[in-house]
Design a protein around this nucleic acid. Structure first.
Lengths: 231, 231
DNA sequence: TCCGGCAGAATATGATCAAATTTTTCGGGG
DNA sequence: CCCCGAAAAATTTGATCATATTCTGCCGGA
């Protein structure tokens, strides 16, 4: 096939072939997933369009997708905001996450290749570094990266898709938890998980994943039940 | 302030609450869920806009949501189509559905009120009537209605949301199954489920749900593996 | 077989309309 | 004289449409 090098001289400053609404979606997704938007915060189409230097329609598309993801909620009238997690929501998330993500870990075990293990180990070291440095955003990003890498190996697109969606729901609250408790006390079952994956013990990997999810979500649930309402 | 109930927007007299893109979304959702669109069928924005007598923008929004739901797939270039389920997909759906929907049945049991049981019984009779009449569409609609009614009682919005999304994925294929095997041989654990719900036996209800899901999805998986030769 | 134009469809923009929230003002009561 | 509440205007924001632009896929000619 021919070289892809035709830079389209007629279009100024548009070398990337990524659709605008996709870029906006990825951008907003990261902002929500890593807690750059606070729970309960209202989002406006025009405000986002201006802050992201994008048109109104792509922002609209992205918001629509995020609402479908559960990352944003449609407030009855036509207001959109970052959802506030309730204790009941957190409890449901605990069950579903344990069920799906432990199964993903189980499936990933037999498919894990040495190169994957090396990559996971590197990510885990980055997680530890972020924890030591008190870098909340870095921890959230790396921790997600660690889980996402495992799920990619599991080769189960539907389950990985569902897991991704769940992360979008508790992402903002997880940031609040880290802000309250700091990064030092965060649970980290990654070592157990890596060991289990390394020796091909699927059940142990699934168990470690369950514990990791359980501990992380219990902190979220604790914040939601303990502190009634902040403004 | 906290998010007060979304049932009453507060404005007195709100009958005209019909956003166009929401209507288009619900319409397309039903069409996919009940098999009015065949797996693999391509959909175009302009074609849908014309067939639904709607503008282009609302159709665009609805398609975006449905893609995020997994009810439609984005074919790499800018083509959109109804997804073809693979055997691996079906196998994942079996696991996740059994996990989530059995838990929903378990939670619904203690919350089930007599009026809910009466309603469920009525829906189940409609299911039986559709089966006897060989009414495939009616069966699909009523069967979904039966499950949705149970999940509504469970009062677990996140899990019910996930279950809804899963139904969108296998809906088109389920129609194919019914078209191949007819409605007579369909599994129906609804009687067991109703009995368990009636006597408040959560574990039995969950078990019946697992069996209902298992049997239905095994038929889908069977069709996909048996005749899964096309690309 | 390969290259270039052609058609069709999706993406993206801006304007315009409608709805809801907010603010301001006016009237009544303490 | 001041405070409170309600109603209406104004602003802000979301929804929709018409239109231009760009890209993909296809077809015909060299």
């Amino acid at each position: 096939m021919g070289s892809i090098g035709d830079a389209a001289p007629g279009t100024p400053g548009n070398p990337a072939k990524a659709p605008a609404h996709e870029l906006v979606y990825q951008r907003l997704r990261s902002q929500i997933l890593f807690g750059e938007m606070a729970p309960g915060q209202a989002v406006t189409i025009q405000g986002l369009a201006e802050s992201l230097a994008a048109g109104m329609t792509p922002v609209r598309e992205a918001i629509r997708r995020l609402i479908s993801d559960g990352a944003l909620v449609f407030q009855g009238n036509r207001r959109v905001s970052v959802p506030l997690l309730t204790a009941a929501d957190a409890e449901q998330l605990i069950y579903v996450r344990k069920s799906i993500e432990s199964e993903l870990a189980r499936r990933a075990t037999s498919r894990m290749r040495p190169a994957d293990l090396v990559r996971l180990d590197g990510i885990d070291r980055a997680v530890d570094a972020a924890i030591s440095a008190g870098d909340v955003t870095g921890y959230l990003q790396r921790n997600y990266e660690f889980h996402a890498a495992i799920y990619a190996v599991a080769d189960a697109s539907i389950m990985a898709d569902l897991a991704d969606r769940l992360w979008l729901r508790f992402g903002p609250s997880l940031r609040v938890v880290c802000g309250r408790f700091g990064t030092q006390n965060l649970p980290d079952r990654h070592k157990d998980m890596l060991a289990a994956l390394g020796r091909g013990d699927a059940e142990a990997a699934a168990r470690a994943m369950r514990q990791d999810v359980e501990q992380g979500m219990q902190m979220v649930a604790g914040v939601l039940t303990g502190a009634g309402g902040e403004e």
